[in-house]
Design a protein around this nucleic acid. Structure first.
Lengths: 358, 358
DNA sequence: TCCTCCTATGTTATCGATAGCATAGGCAAT
DNA sequence: ATTGCCTATGCTATCGATAACATAGGAGGA
């Protein structure tokens, strides 16, 4: 039985323990484990045997402190991981980080700037090499060089405002404009827009793209079909339902992100004939839906990779001289659905045939 | 201009710098920052002013070393974050971790056990408090108490084999059995199964549930409709297409996870009348698809939360005496689509009406 | 007035690993 | 044989923060 000294402390073996067991000094252990050529093979073997026997594992906390490194990690502050955009982004970041022997410390972004600032200082206290962030508001003072203590920061999806920093953006404007134009080309004139809060840069940019396409086509009376809201499927569904209930409903809608698109799809599944939809973010089932569908596609994973690359580029190197860089991830417009012509889609009106096998 | 001494090292201020500026000792700074009641308000203010002026931030690496803690983080080793199952799991883990002031270090699981073992030791070197893992194969020796150096480990989605450890599982068997029974109740007798490799526990369990339902109904000749494969949408699509091309195709299919379900949906969208589908994992657009659809739903976020709870329960406490626990996340079966009756779904045969607004 | 006690602060040792310098022992050269 | 050098290993200080112990100086009691 163990005395009170054992309360919770599993007392991991240290290098000193290895040294004692191997009958050498700690420094010799350190050198042996780094395969220093000055250490005899015989000694190395004794050390390695002791390491095996004790199950010794280097304490990176101590090591990092001594060699002046941080935690060998990068911080990632993003929104809801349940949103595929963010999870794919995280995937890309993790991929590149691993190639550099770094781990990713991820934390969920706060709703408010204050919380976000706390997360930032927390990560900096943990001595991450830098931070990748999809910031919430447009007040980015807590991400300026001062508060960041010189650690690099990369903005994703939204550009820094008021401070100089690298960022990776999606071509929101061009993508939205092109997709909207395609709707117009298909003959739609009454087009609605289910947008994000205009305080979100992405939301503003996408709306700008929408406006540009409409203006160029000479369409001006779309304001009553425009809505802004949070990224929430249920809320979007409600919003779209209200738009569709107007006396003269639009014949097409642009959804500003995948949350809004899903909400729109739910609401649109109730109207006949189906409304045409366009929206930002591709999704897996896009190809099998029986309604005119246009999506603005891009690669969120690549966005994450690029952000990590920009960040790591500044880590270690004296990159303070390099001016802020801005990488734009290109978008492409994909037209799914009936218009493509060759798809064999799920059909309306076969509800009665449901229990096909019965 | 800066001399060569400035190469890359941003030289963050230390507690010593603060002490010097405030005209006190480092210990006084430490106490002041911990709001020790023995320190004069006057001194505290001087210290705080110095902290402000220098932008000092506590070095948690040093602190953790001294107080004998690890990195205040938990390791998360999971499969592809692009799979919503994993990203939601990660969300739940992060949620609970944050409540305990811990961050999550996540790394992508390896394809092979060897890589996985490397990731584990790497995380342990970084002194995480414990590890949550969705292991790849069924050889879990690298996760035994020895290699884990006594750090707790929690298995998610798959139980530990050959070692004692906590785990959180989904009720794969019951969920699959119930969903399959519902298909049978709807009159299907020729039911296929698009499964995972049988080496994956989840895959085996779900197949067992499928078999149980079929046996109970006296259905025995389903073997030719059973396939196993990797979790890949494209591969699943191909597989399902080949099943549907059989002389006597099944009238219903069970897809063992969301990847297979999506592949099945793609393939099934090409046949008429639509095949009935059932599958593991709910998905957002399930409610608007015009085919008989049954899903086994559960909460992956809660699975992550529960795993984190189990892990944290063993951290710090002398929980070595607590025997391994097994938590089962319940499933529920949801029937979507035409059979429900009240849904107004996308319809077949309106392909020509596509450009509705034109 | 002197001595105690308390209070605010300082000193030292420590966490575990590692850089830099120090040293013992062997071998070669003179 | 003695000097000198080289090689394998050891010793000490250090990274930054903190626990444990130490101390100066003032307040209060006799």
């Amino acid at each position: 039985m163990m005395g009170p000294a054992s309360r919770g402390s599993r007392s991991v073996p240290t290098m000193r323990d290895v040294a004692t067991l191997a009958g050498v000094s700690v420094m010799t252990v350190s050198r042996a484990l780094h395969d220093d050529p000055r250490i005899t093979d015989d000694t190395k073997n004794r050390v390695r045997a002791a390491v095996q026997q004790l199950g010794y594992l280097r304490n990176d906390t101590a090591r990092n402190l001594r060699i002046g490194r941080g935690a060998d990690a990068i911080g990632l502050i993003i929104g809801n991981l349940a949103n595929p955009f963010y999870s794919q982004l995280a995937l890309g970041v993790g991929e590149v980080a691993e190639q550099h022997g770094l781990t990713v410390m991820f934390v969920n972004a706060g709703r408010d700037v204050e919380r976000e600032a706390r997360l930032v200082t927390d990560l900096l206290s943990r001595r991450v090499e830098g931070i990748i962030i999809a910031p919430e508001g447009d007040d980015h003072r807590h991400l300026a060089a001062g508060p960041m203590r010189g650690a690099p920061v990369v903005f994703v999806a939204r550009p820094p405002s008021g401070i100089a920093a690298d960022c990776v953006l999606v071509d929101d404007f061009a993508g939205t404009k092109e997709a909207t134009s395609r709707l117009i080309k298909r003959g739609h004139t009454r087009i609605g827009f289910v947008g994000l809060p205009s305080t979100v840069w992405t939301g503003a940019e996408r709306f700008r793209g929408f406006q540009a396409a409409m203006s160029e086509a000479g369409l001006r009376s779309y304001k009553r079909y425009v809505r802004y809201q949070e990224s929430d499927v249920t809320a979007a569904e409600k919003t779209v339902r209200s738009i569709l209930a107007l006396a003269t409903p639009p014949t097409a809608l642009f959804a500003a992100n995948n949350r809004n698109m899903f909400g729109a799809l739910r609401a649109a599944s109730e109207v006949d004939p189906p409304i045409a939809l366009a929206g930002f973010d591709d999704f897996e089932l896009a190809g099998i839906l029986a309604l005119p569908l246009i999506v603005v596609a891009y690669d969120p994973v690549e966005l994450g990779r690029e952000a990590a690359r920009l960040l790591l580029d500044r880590v270690g190197a004296n990159a303070a001289d390099v001016p802020p860089r801005r990488v734009i991830i290109p978008t492409s417009v994909i037209e799914y659905g009936p218009v493509g012509g060759s798809y064999n889609l799920f059909g309306r009106g076969n509800g009665g045939r449901a229990a096909a096998g019965s």
